[in-house]
Amino acid sequence: MVRFEENNIQAVGSTYSLVKCNHEPVVRVVKDKAIMEDDEPTYAKMLDSDFHDGTIEADVLSRLLPDAPDHARGFIGIAFRIAADDSAFEAFYIRPTNGRAKVQLRRNRATQYFSYPHFKYMHSRESHPGEYEAYADMELDKWIHLKITVQGEKAQLYLHHQKQPVLIVNDLKHGDSRGQIALWVDIGTEGFFKNVKITSLSSL
């Protein structure tokens, strides 16, 4: 498990704090309100991470902030292979409010892959509708286990310790790259992270 301390984590487009949630030590991350665009570098970055291929796991929980806008969905996830200057990265995230929405289209958009800066959610919806989003059951204010597997230009997102992925990406937009890992949130989210585990392919 990754041990979080002040000297190994950096806030980028966000604020973070080491707090307790239900008596457990966790990392709390909130997006900087000055950043209005979606799918941006708004995360707590693990400075000592250097990730190429392997798995990333974390338990995440999101709540809506009191001033969250109507389009907030509890956005929370993991960014990986982050460039040193935060100019490029890959990411998976979830929208917990969509998991049990009464509208099927919103359910279909419960999980999301995006690639910064040129392949955000709106780009994938325009060019490849439905290919980089998928349904999964989830709720706000509940711990959700995420697992991301990465190898070369392919990545898969798993939820709830299930054996099958909920979302498959066969063409990561930055190709076979490497970089740091971060705990990512977007607008209106109070995000909590715990039990972060990183396993490189060489040690699997």
Score class of each variant (00 low, 15 high):
2 V>R: 10
3 R>L: 13
4 F>V: 15
4 F>A: 03
9 I>F: 04
9 I>Q: 00
9 I>T: 10
10 Q>N: 04
11 A>Y: 11
13 G>H: 02
14 S>H: 02
14 S>G: 07
15 T>M: 08
17 S>W: 09
17 S>I: 02
17 S>A: 15
17 S>N: 13
18 L>M: 11
19 V>K: 05
21 C>S: 11
21 C>W: 02
24 E>D: 14
24 E>P: 02
27 V>N: 01
27 V>C: 01
30 V>Q: 06
31 K>Y: 07
31 K>E: 02
32 D>C: 05
35 I>H: 00
36 M>D: 05
37 E>K: 14
38 D>V: 11
38 D>H: 14
39 D>A: 07
41 P>V: 11
44 A>L: 05
46 M>C: 13
47 L>W: 03
48 D>S: 07
49 S>C: 09
51 F>Q: 08
52 H>T: 15
53 D>C: 11
53 D>H: 12
54 G>N: 02
57 E>G: 08
58 A>W: 03
59 D>Q: 10
62 S>I: 04
64 L>I: 00
66 P>S: 11
67 D>F: 03
68 A>C: 06
74 G>I: 08
75 F>H: 06
75 F>A: 07
77 G>Y: 04
78 I>S: 00
79 A>V: 15
79 A>W: 01
79 A>Y: 06
80 F>C: 08
81 R>S: 12
89 F>Q: 05
91 A>K: 01
92 F>P: 05
100 R>A: 14
100 R>M: 10
101 A>E: 10
102 K>V: 03
103 V>W: 15
104 Q>D: 13
104 Q>R: 13
104 Q>F: 09
106 R>G: 01
107 R>D: 01
107 R>E: 01
107 R>K: 13
109 R>P: 03
111 T>D: 01
112 Q>E: 09
113 Y>G: 12
114 F>S: 01
116 Y>S: 00
117 P>E: 03
118 H>S: 03
118 H>E: 01
119 F>Y: 10
122 M>I: 05
123 H>A: 14
125 R>C: 07
128 H>T: 08
132 Y>K: 04
136 A>Q: 05
137 D>P: 14
137 D>L: 12
138 M>F: 02
138 M>L: 04
139 E>L: 08
140 L>G: 02
142 K>C: 08
143 W>N: 00
146 L>S: 08
149 T>R: 12
155 A>R: 04
156 Q>I: 00
157 L>R: 10
160 H>V: 05
160 H>C: 03
168 I>E: 14
168 I>T: 12
169 V>D: 03
171 D>Q: 09
174 H>L: 11
174 H>I: 08
175 G>H: 11
176 D>A: 14
177 S>C: 13
182 A>W: 02
184 W>H: 14
184 W>M: 07
185 V>S: 09
188 G>S: 14
188 G>I: 04
189 T>N: 14
191 G>Q: 07
191 G>K: 05
194 K>L: 03
195 N>P: 04
196 V>H: 09
197 K>L: 07
198 I>M: 15
199 T>R: 13
202 S>C: 12
203 S>F: 10
